[in-house]
Design a protein around this nucleic acid. Structure first.
Lengths: 326, 326
DNA sequence: GCGTGTAACTGAAGCGCGTAAGCAAGGTAA
DNA sequence: TTACCTTGCTTACGCGCTTCAGTTACACGC
């Protein structure tokens, strides 16, 4: 094993460039209000590059009090590909602002979130659903300057999804809708919001609110829901996500109910296997890019001490992917 | 907005407990070789608890040179739920050793991995496939003391999967096998390893190696593969993962080929929708728990400066989930 | 020649912590 | 008594960096 291969520090760069460490710091962070001639600047940058200097983030954040690290707390629930795409978008958008995203799966058996926040020294923490006030306080005491989403914001984020699902079915002539809520309790809140959106759409169209039923990823629960719906005259079902939708689909096939003729089904997320379902599943896809940008804007604004701009409440951008299940 | 609510530092604890900071540090890290009476120890721990003291990881790692942070570099490819379960297991196992796991999605548009490593101050970096020597060097210069998996280890990790898939089909009487390789190029290496495992099993049984074909998540490529297989007398197909398997399934149904009578299909990962496929998909599931433990052992050993124990080469623990697609 | 201003830096403090080294008090042992 | 532990702490340094408060060198105006 090779000896640890000492890191290059800013002192190394300073020495090699014949300036002080302060100057190196000014150049590398191009600090405004300092007048540094182009020649010196270039020299320092060149040396830094040549020595493969990488600022020691730990020391940097200790000194400056800031940290460039944004912690994403991912809830410990069945995660689909759409989440990982969201994470990717988020990381890219943050990188544009010089911020680094790290993710932490907040399982019960891992470490408590404030601990993680303190160990990595995160300046901002993002969750999927709002944190309760106590948690926010704990995170702030652990060093987080910004905690997202704000209690108000997350509330409305999921509503449009449900609305679009229902609106699509209503457009296609369905008069009585069902809503498939996943059995997993962690989805409860999100599901409630989406259901609310669907309800809104129904009421706006003068229809009765959707008949909701709990559907797990198995034929029993899905089968029960399907027969209940059929009995109640439901002809179109919005599912919380594509997996739930596929359970409904499978149950319908199993009970000899034709899709979409007797029962139309629409999911959410457009997972990779959605087009492979029988029949191919109509779904709704968010513009993760837009959502990520919005989140990042909030963070950057928050870190700059401004209240976030009160513009578009998150996810206007939702796209319908029409296939043959509706 | 409340003012930032200053963090409690070890100095606060020291003051409140009427001792010096050094003593606090000794107690909280229960440093061996120091004789500290139980009374003092308790007092300090109580005060720390009362003040909700959380050591500032940043400062701690700057001072000590170590950092408790393990960085998991997740490749930027379609990620399934099984990966997130693996991450969870890993986080839990690391937490038992006082280590904190953070994840970074290594997309092209994010920051380069060594930069991330340097900013978070990770002591260990874990990837899914081995890093090439240059990358390892870069990471080490960025502060990583351990980089996994070692070039040797990852190589053999995927082979047993393919072997088990093929063995299962051979057990059930299939004499000519196919292998469905995903179209996505990032899976290439993993797929090659699994295919090798399947080939091994065939040869061991005195059969011809599997006929491999590239299958994307669409009916065209999958359909072509299926007709080719049927034409070649293939009666059983191992798919790289469940999604690919579902594409094969969908194409078979589409071409009126009966599963499993005319073509048996087995996947990998046991994704949530696998039981909902038509017919329900036979799959192979790793014991993520065991894999995670192994990785963690390697890390802990590496951080302690020992060469890793040369025991079981990772994933002996693979479980077959038999359903009706085979 | 002197004060004033600016460009181009440098010196040094200190972020929160770990840790080597030191030190006072009390207890042996000789 | 002195010499030498041991216990139970404290003092002080430094990790790599940012950043404030200078300092020097030089140009300018009068």
């Amino acid at each position: 094993m090779t000896p640890p291969a000492k890191r290059t520090t800013s002192a190394d760069v300073a020495r090699a460039a014949g300036v002080s460490r302060a100057t190196v710091s000014y150049v590398l962070n191009d600090r405004p209000g300092q007048s540094i001639p182009e020649a010196t600047r270039r020299r320092i940058l060149d040396v830094a590059q040549r020595l493969e200097y990488r600022p020691h983030g730990t020391a940097r954040s200790l000194a400056s009090g800031r940290s460039d690290i944004v912690l994403l707390a991912v809830p410990d629930l069945p995660i689909g590909a759409s989440i990982s795409r969201f994470v990717e978008e988020l990381a890219a958008a943050l990188a544009e602002h010089g911020l680094t995203l790290v993710t932490h799966l907040a399982g019960a058996r891992g470490r408590p979130l404030p601990d993680v926040c303190a160990t990595v020294g995160a300046t901002a923490v993002i969750g999927f659903t709002p944190f309760d006030p106590d948690a926010v306080r704990a995170l702030q005491r652990a060093g987080a300057q910004v905690v997202l989403p704000p209690a108000a914001d997350g509330d409305a984020a999921m509503v449009p999804i449900g609305r679009i699902q229902a609106a699509h079915l209503i457009d296609r002539g369905h008069q009585r809708l069902g809503y498939a809520v996943p059995a997993h309790p962690d989805f409860e809140q999100m599901a409630a919001e989406r259901l609310r959106g669907a309800t809104d759409a129904c009421i706006a169209a003068g229809l009765a609110p959707p008949l909701s039923a709990s559907v797990g990823l198995d034929l029993q629960t899905a089968g029960r829901a399907v027969t209940d719906w059929i009995a109640a005259g439901v002809t179109g079902v919005c599912a919380f996500n594509d997996e739930t939708a596929m359970a409904v689909l499978a149950a319908a096939v199993h009970h000899g109910i034709r899709v979409p003729a007797e029962l139309a089904v629409i999911g959410v997320d457009d997972i990779p296997v959605a087009p492979l379902a029988a029949p191919p599943l109509t779904s709704v896809r968010f513009d993760l890019h837009a959502v990520a940008r919005r989140r990042v804007d909030l963070i950057v604004a928050g870190l700059a001490g401004q209240e976030p701009s009160p513009e578009s409440p998150a996810m206007a951008a939702v796209q319908l992917i029409q296939r043959s299940s509706t």
